[in-house]
Design a protein around this nucleic acid. Structure first.
Lengths: 235, 235
DNA sequence: GCAACGCTTCGTTGGCGAGCGAAACGTCAC
DNA sequence: GTGACGTTTCGCTCGCCAACGAAGCGTTGC
């Protein structure tokens, strides 16, 4: 036990070029080695070495397809670890009004791996509990009786979620909020539905999301969430 | 956004000597710089530089007292991040029967920052819910009606917990188990009580805990937990 | 006071690893 | 087949950072 087990993983994720690649893969996509090299601003040879180490360390998985090799995060656990690490990071000194606004938007709504996070996500989880679609559980959440009609209102087909063999509902702790929100298959379906219906919209920054006016209306109508008053939430 | 926010933290935690120091601090103690230097096997000068960086990065806090400077983790968030990173680490190749047994014990019961983790912790959380001492919540857990007498059975003085100004009950996700267990003030009180009464016992390895025979009896009597059958738990 | 102690700062050295270009390997297109 | 492309392997260079000893600063104890 000379070296703690987290050290190797941290060292892998800590190198700048590798960190950029991991961040690029954060949403769960599988990208070719060349694309990751370009994203990190390094030569293909260097990227290959980095990706080899990340794979060796179990942070990414490789899928060879033709002359491409597609890399993606090894699983939600990796994404969760990166997210948690980010929560430790010093609040970035705000240099400009633009920075502050960007931060505020990121706190409000962002994607976390393949699901929704931020104040909006916490509010939705609480609303789902309040309306009986979810029930708190000693394991996080489980589906409640009123789930199907309520979820249908925002365009989530519950049958498709249940068919999915992943854990249907998983809780994810948002460490900027210290509160649970919905991950797992339902979390992914929620994000897809809200993006598909135009309620949410991806911003130019990697993980940032915007709530559109129609999204505001939808969330208010379906759950009674007033997304302009979200700051009043947390404990 | 050239460098992801987790990179700096990961780089800090990834350097071997710093990782050893962080691991040494993992249980929340405050240790003097010299002790950490010895633990990491480096000269005081080197340790000082490392600790300076860790403090600068917000991973540890310093408290000067006389001619000593005591360092400790900056908070539970840091411990949680390290724990989560460890969950990503490849399952260490088992080299010997001793390794396997050590691993099994660590899965069963260990300390996580200042509270109890592992299968035992998950089982206790579930039992507390089952007996009405805790109620699942969209935020994790909250105290239930039957909390006081039940917790008294295992030597936890609920009044002392409530007096504590930390969040009384917080949920912590054990990522080797993917299930919630009790953290926060109650989590810390639980660990203290079980250690104090001899139900649990620290092993030589840093975070490992043993359930003593008297602890087995106590858990069975209080909660109906059969600690020899815990493997049957998880999902 | 003076000496012992704990810690930090400074200046220097040395080794590890990120980075690249060149070349080899495999795949696809025609 | 042949050439273009994506990726990996190899050999090399260079910069960064961990590590140490020595010196400086504050605290404790006699």
């Amino acid at each position: 036990m000379s070296e703690p087990d987290f050290a190797a993983v941290a060292a892998l994720a800590g190198e700048p070029a590798r960190a950029i690649m991991l961040a690029t893969l954060f949403d769960g996509r599988a990208l070719a080695a060349g694309e990751l090299a370009r994203a990190a601003g390094i030569a293909p040879a260097t990227a290959s070495a980095h990706l080899g180490k990340l794979a060796e360390g179990g942070l990414v998985r490789v899928r060879a397809q033709g002359r491409h090799r597609y890399y993606q995060l090894a699983g939600p656990v990796v994404a969760h670890a990166l997210e948690t690490l980010g929560a430790v990071a010093r609040p970035v000194p705000v240099r400009s009004l633009g920075d502050a606004l960007r931060m505020q938007r990121l706190r409000r709504a962002r994607s976390c791996y393949n699901h929704l996070a931020g104040e909006i996500a916490v509010a939705i989880a609480q609303a789902l509990v309040r309306h009986g679609a979810l029930e708190p559980d000693d394991d996080g959440f489980r589906l409640g009786a009123g789930a199907r009609p309520l979820l249908a209102r925002i365009g989530v087909d519950l049958a498709a979620v249940v068919r999915d063999d992943r854990a249907h509902v998983r809780a994810c702790v948002d460490w900027t909020q210290r509160r649970l929100h919905v991950a797992g298959a339902l979390g992914a379906a929620l994000l897809d539905a809200l993006l598909g219906s135009g309620a949410l919209q991806r911003r130019r920054e990697p993980r940032a999301l915007d709530v559109t006016p129609s999204g505001d209306a939808l969330l208010t109508a379906a759950f009674g969430i007033d997304s302009t008053a979200l700051d009043a939430l947390g404990a």
